[in-house]
Amino acid sequence: MSIESKPAARTGAPVVTDGTAAAHKTRVSPLAIVVLVMLAVFAYFAFVFAPEDELQGAMQRIFYIHVPSAWICFVGFGVTFLSSIAYLSSRKEKWDTIAASSAEIGTLFTTVVLATGMMWGHAIWGVYWTWEPRLTSFLVLWLMYLGYLAVRAYVPDPARRARFSAVIGIIAFIDVPIIYLSVNWWRTLHPQQVIITGDGPHMPGAMVIALMVGLTTFSLVYVYLMRLRLDVARLATQLEEIES
């Protein structure tokens, strides 16, 4: 995760001497180091610093990865939503690239939310899955962004692909506020909001601190993955230009 490689030169096409991957420098980016350090700090706060929940025991510690992953997936899809609007209004390719990259990473975070949520549900509710509003609306979100990625994979014409996926990226985001408010709108098995409430967080301060450390860590993971994904997109475009 921490190793990044870059072309020998950043100006235009890379300087190549022997036609092999050895022509590229390999280095560790400062952001990768920060992410690795923060992951270690996160592990300490999630498993040592935060007190054990009286009712749920150790299982409650999955909260520190489940909730930040959910918040960051919303941020990721928010970036896709705004970039899709920017693409449709400007038709600039860079907005399509940002939207696609963020959707891919947002889908990764959504998958983590579903996986950790199922483990938590099985421990507390006795079932991996139940068709209640929060879980169902989250599954719908995941399926919509899988559809978004499928459109990107199977529509060959770049302009049509960008236009179709931008429309899906805008429509799919409507599900985000529905997910967030589902625990208020309907009677759900899923817990109510415990952090953003009218009268402050409904949990011990040490747990809130551990959650904030998790949120910071996974925000950095998102930024790191976005940089990497955008780099891949840039290189793919560069290769297409060379081949055409």
Binding site: P14, D18, T116, L225, I242
Partner: peptide, 29 residues
Amino acid sequence: LAGVLYIGYTVSLHVRRRNLQAAIASQTD
């Protein structure tokens, strides 16, 4: 599961980038 997903995706991006860099290098050559 979370670790496998996050690490797997990160490694896949590194592999994709490395392959693209190699392809660009060979095309330029």
